[in-house]
């Protein structure tokens, strides 16, 4: 009967893990700081790849000059990007090796270095918010509407979740 109890425990463990993933993102959406980011227009060739849209942010390609630490960033390395509020949207102000302290009107996003383009002085980054899952067959609509901004929520513990796509150009 010990085995039966163990299986019950295992079921509970699985539910806790799933609940943890869902719950933390739900709380992020409810309580996190709302940050609006510029995106480049959606590339239609990515659109029908699956049931999601690929989002290219302005902050996905940053000038290498924003690198604030010693040495250089490495491929596949985790870095921290400081975003500063600038009008309606947030823009990157510096990139760090370790989580920096922030001032009022700043947030920090964790990113993974996807490429260091020395010859063009560019840093390519992924934030884990590059996909927006959509209902099958609605991709065409999103492509036509051309969302150019994305609202995300940043939790105090650094978690990031997409809240919505914003359309300003089509209005």
């Amino acid at each position: 009967m010990i085995r039966k109890k163990m299986i019950y425990l295992l079921i509970v463990l699985q539910l806790i893990i799933l609940g943890g993933i869902a719950g933390s993102h739900y709380i992020t959406l409810q309580t996190g700081e709302r940050v609006t980011l510029e995106t480049e227009p959606i590339d239609p060739k990515d659109l029908f790849h699956g049931d999601y849209v690929i989002l290219n942010y302005e902050i996905s390609r940053l000038p290498l000059s924003l690198w604030a630490d010693e040495g250089a960033p490495h491929y596949n390395e985790g870095v921290y990007v400081v975003l500063k509020e600038s009008g309606e949207v947030y823009e990157a102000s510096s990139v760090h090796n370790n989580r920096p302290d922030t001032e009022e009107g700043e947030v920090v996003l964790k990113a993974i270095v996807r490429g260091v383009m020395d010859h063009v002085g560019e840093l390519r980054l992924d934030y884990g918010i590059e996909r927006y899952y959509i209902e099958e067959g609605t991709g065409r609509q999103i492509e036509e509407d051309r969302p150019d901004r994305v609202a995300i929520r940043v939790a105090p513990w650094g978690q990031v979740t997409i809240e919505e796509l914003i359309y300003t150009s089509s209005e």
Binding site: L18, I21, A22, G128, I129, R131, Y133, T161
Partner: peptide, 25 residues
């Protein structure tokens, strides 16, 4: 059946990620 449960758990992680538009690199 318990094996299918384990498979469901894996599928559950990916479906939950999809609900919140998470890409885990």
């Amino acid at each position: 059946w318990i094996g299918i449960g384990t498979l469901t758990f894996g599928a559950g992680i990916f479906l939950t990620a999809q609900i919140f538009h998470i890409v885990s690199y």
